[in-house]
């Protein structure tokens, strides 16, 4: 079993439509730790040692957040700047994250068609996540395709995202149980819509 850490960042969770529901879909899973960053560090004063300890204790790192300005909410940037230290995460002697798997689970306001060449956002979510891709690469982590849920503002009930919830839970479970084809997942565009394609055969209980 691989241990999964969800680094969760939503500045106003009480107003969240999708992220909250996605989180609730996985927060009862064994072997999954959810670190609610805005709740833990409301003044953005991040406990670096604690965060590094959490990273060491887990094998799969999922950044779950709304897709603000084609990226993440501020606290995740601060988290990157402070936690991913030279000599710890990268650079000379920085091997603590080597061999881990990482991906972003994001929600966007716009529809899927907006996130493509010719769409009004011009790039795919995968493309816009290029800095995360390179960050993972520099730290020796395997970077998987994002789990992206689009048109988040149109969702107002659990039923509206029932499919996404099931997909998210399935993905996290599969990552935990190591039932995922990592190479395929790395090459995919959006794990939310290509999940069947990357899942390995279900183990016989």
């Amino acid at each position: 079993m691989r241990r999964v850490l969800i680094l969760f960042a939503h500045p106003v969770l009480e107003r969240s439509r999708v992220n909250r529901r996605l989180m609730e879909a996985v927060n009862d899973l064994d072997g999954v730790t959810i670190q609610d960053l805005y709740e833990a560090y409301p003044t953005l004063s991040i406990d670096v040692a604690r965060e590094q300890q959490l990273l060491v204790e887990h094998d799969v790192i999922v950044f779950q957040h709304p897709f603000y300005w084609y990226s993440c909410p501020a606290i995740l940037k601060e988290w990157q700047d402070l936690v991913l230290e030279h000599g710890w995460a990268y650079g000379k002697g920085g091997t603590q994250l080597r061999g881990k798997t990482t991906l972003n689970a994001v929600t966007t306001g716009g529809p899927e068609v907006a996130y493509q060449k010719g769409g009004y956002n011009r790039f795919t979510v995968r493309e816009l996540l290029t800095p995360w891709d390179q960050t993972a690469h520099l730290c020796g982590m395997k970077f998987l395709a994002p789990f992206a849920v689009h048109s988040a503002l149109k969702i107002s009930s659990d039923a509206d995202i029932a499919t996404a919830r099931i997909a998210y839970r399935t993905l996290i479970e599969a990552l935990r149980d190591d039932r995922i084809d990592l190479d395929r997942a790395a090459a995919a565009e959006n794990l939310a819509s290509e999940l069947e394609h990357v899942l390995g055969p279900r183990e016989v209980a």
């Binding site: 716009g110 529809p111 068609v113 907006a114 010719g118 769409g119 009004y120 048109s151 503002l153």
Partner: peptide, 21 residues
Amino acid sequence: DNESLRADRQVDAQSTETTTS
């Protein structure tokens, strides 16, 4: 990133081609 964003974009002369769902 909702309708209002696209409404602004439509006003923008440079961008006539917007994709709506």
